[in-house]
Design a protein around this nucleic acid. Structure first.
Lengths: 328, 328
DNA sequence: CAGATATACATAACGTGTTATGTATATCCT
DNA sequence: AGGATATACATAACACGTTATGTATATCTG
């Protein structure tokens, strides 16, 4: 049985971190027990903070530990129960409590520092210190990034790529019908492909990508349709009018080209019309080149078509914000 | 207020991972809530596993999720409560239950995959994908290492370095008195340094390291004592007889040399006696060179001394198992 | 084939995080 | 000065992981 958290990749990052943390903490607890220490794992950060920073108020401990105030209060009660810490009401502010170590607490820490901590630290470093950067550096980076902008904020704005599934067939039709009917009209070829995306594209080895924009949902789509051996047409690319101006199209096209490069194709072309100025500009920006030969060979596929372009698959991608891998 | 978990480094790896995991999960939950999903974060792995792997028995789900069986049972009850999953008793084995998604569950997953997952995955990747290796690769490495040998096993065997603190003064005396009295006898210089390690070494800018061996505790020590401007003597190195044969001395000496290299000194020498064959062999192995000039200059410090060596501080360390950083 | 053992899942109890809220004390403002 | 507001910590309730144990069903064995 495979591991779902590993399979889900970054999507399950939180759950995966938690699972690993539980495992490490359980193991560390065992080490402490082997050395006859009665503390529970949750006591340990507060104890260490008191040792390192001296007496702290509850509020200061909250800041030092980076957990909620009730969590600190509970740790504190545990330590008091064990006789390792004590509190005194502050003289200047009778709401505050100053937490300090008892002689027993000081002795216990000294023993831990001598007999247990070094071995745990060494074992953890052995586990986690990588050849390039250690896990600790990575964690610090993630924490700093999270301080800057939370995961939910990051999820809210920006674009993400979604792969084709049958419940997106309607969106595929709607998004394309919008711009085609506005600028041209639906040709028989259009109707067939838009109405049967799985048969016309997916089942033949092609791909359909969608772009979802934070808060708006699916706003654009783009297909890679096989038309001959090793030859694909980039087609049916559209972004809803309501979502224009957010660079969704650029993000989508970059992701589609990424996909194309991974798909073992020899030729990738597209057909469009001189009327679609902004689209042509985007194609050029991401690396497409005008190609008269393609126009002669494949141009008859659509009446509206009078421009053809090819993409140089062997060249590296343009430097566009690289989209994250889509969810399968 | 500084962050204790960051300060403790690898020692607090578990707690730090847990804190980060809580933060990410809380944030992810918020994203789900914004998109009107009622699921709690713990439901998500089971839901994803059912979507990806099809109907599962409880046991299979335990394997796929990598958590305990009661945790799966609770997730399952939650999903059933929400009407997203259902169970059927297996035909062939009436102890087993097969968990499958209800139509509601299938629809909910489809919506999540379309509207939420891609954005969460993208945001998490943005947070955690590093320039060199992503956090995910690191986690996979740590998980694999943990599968091989648990943290507690790793902590149990092997050596760790402990820095000087006053409650180790006794150990400093005992460990050195053991070998000195056995092979020679305590000279006045010995008695002074061993009895006043802080005054004679630490306060003058020197360092004393101890090596703790899994299960045995502190078994060895080694000092870096300033004797002139920029000149240090590596001295008072000993390992208890009871701990010989475990390479504790080699580990300790390597760590001491690591420390020396970080201490901004120009000359590091040691004095010993031809009687100490195995020690001399170790010194040579880790890079010390015999030095007659030093013997002439500093040799009179001890009666027993008839060998002097210097360490080439500008050369890279010998390839000895690098010790983890000691706990301050 | 009946009783012992093993297996699959449920339940109980508990540790440790969270958010929401209560209570006593400080501080601010008219 | 006195009432409103803010602050420091305590408490309650709950989420979600754990281990230990209970219960029904399979399977093994003499």
């Amino acid at each position: 049985m495979p591991d779902i958290l590993q399979d889900l990749g970054y999507l399950a990052l939180g759950s995966r971190l938690k699972r690993l943390a539980e495992r490490l903490q359980a193991d560390a607890t065992q080490v402490f027990e082997q050395n006859c220490f009665v503390t529970q794992p949750s006591h340990f950060p507060l104890l260490a903070a008191l040792d390192r920073y001296g007496p702290l108020t509850v509020g200061e401990a909250v800041a030092a530990l980076g957990v909620s105030q009730p969590a600190v209060t509970r740790s504190l009660l545990g330590l008091i129960d064990l006789g390792l810490a004590e509190t005194t009401v502050s003289e200047t502010d009778r709401r505050q409590k100053s937490i300090s170590l008892t002689p027993d607490g000081i002795a216990a820490i000294a023993r831990m520092k001598r007999d247990v901590w070094p071995h745990v630290a060494r074992a953890a470093e052995e586990l986690a210190a990588g050849p390039d950067a250690g896990l600790l550096d990575q964690l610090a980076r993630v924490e700093a990034a999270l301080d800057e902008r939370s995961l939910s904020e990051r999820a809210r704005d920006g674009h993400a790529i979604v792969d084709y599934s049958d419940d997106l067939a309607d969106a595929f039709y709607t998004i394309n019908a919008e711009w085609i009917t506005e600028m041209f009209s639906l040709e028989p070829e259009d109707r067939h492909v838009l109405s049967h995306p799985r048969e016309a594209i997916i089942d033949k080895g092609g791909a359909i990508l969608f772009v979802s924009t934070g808060g708006l949902g699916i706003v654009g789509t783009c297909a890679l349709m096989p038309v001959a051996d090793g030859t694909f047409e980039l087609t049916k690319m559209g972004v809803l009018k309501t979502a224009r101006g957010r660079k969704a199209g650029e993000y989508l096209l970059a992701a589609t080209l990424d996909r194309a490069r991974s798909m073992d194709m020899e030729t990738l072309f597209l057909l469009t019309s001189r009327k679609c100025e902004s689209a042509i500009h985007l194609y050029e920006k991401l690396g497409f080149r005008h190609d008269a030969g393609i126009l002669a060979t494949f141009g008859k596929r659509y009446e509206r078509c009078n421009v053809a372009m090819t993409y140089p698959l062997d060249q590296p991608a343009q430097d566009i914000a690289a989209p994250a891998g889509p969810i399968a």
